[in-house]
């Protein structure tokens, strides 16, 4: 994962940008691609996106720092977004957070010692009917109980083994 984005992907993005009437339309896609490959978007990733899009790093940074699902700081191999909005709150989100904190030994914004999980709070995930819920990577898990959380963490850490 030392590489920010494989060369063939860089070339493919550049090709899409060429002749595109509004290259900046792709800024979120490029940042997401970098994040998907590299895990998070380092400064060099912002600079790479700027180069691909034909703009300045600042212009990319203006966008990257607006969205909460673009990580501009290092994260673990899996990012856990725990919903703290009203429906999950009403059904035990605080207990879920407490359990995760204890289990992983980390607080919000921190990464577990093994580098596997980063814990972040999130606004509503659109899983209100299955509250409490959390999202790991791009997958949403609902109806969380301590047992279910343990099973999910085990499966995720197995998949995300370095």
């Amino acid at each position: 994962m030392s590489q920010i984005l494989p060369q063939e992907q860089i070339d493919a993005w550049k090709e899409r940008v060429t002749g595109h009437a509004h290259p900046m339309e792709l800024v979120v896609d490029v940042l997401r691609a970098i994040q998907a490959h590299h895990g998070w978007v380092p400064d060099a990733g912002v600079e790479l996106a700027a180069e691909i899009l034909g703009t300045t790093p600042l212009r990319v940074e203006e966008i990257a720092t607006f969205y909460d699902k673009i990580y501009r700081r290092p994260v673990g191999r899996r990012v856990i977004h725990v919903c703290d909005s009203i429906c999950c709150w009403s059904r035990g989100a605080e207990e879920v957070v407490g359990f995760l904190r204890e289990r992983l030994g980390i607080g919000f914004g921190e990464t577990s010692a093994d580098g596997c999980f980063t814990l972040l709070p999130s606004c509503c995930l659109g899983a209100c009917g299955e509250a409490p819920a959390m999202m790991i990577g791009l997958t949403t898990h609902g109806n969380l109980t301590p047992a279910r959380i343990l099973a999910i963490l085990a499966a995720e850490s197995g998949e995300a083994a370095p």
């Binding site: 909005s85 009203i86 509503c124 659109g126 209100c128 009917g129």
Partner: peptide
């Protein structure tokens, strides 16, 4: 962009 807490119908 369905994101208002409580709202999950579009999904």
């Amino acid at each position: 962009d369905e994101m208002e807490p409580g709202t999950y119908k579009d999904r």
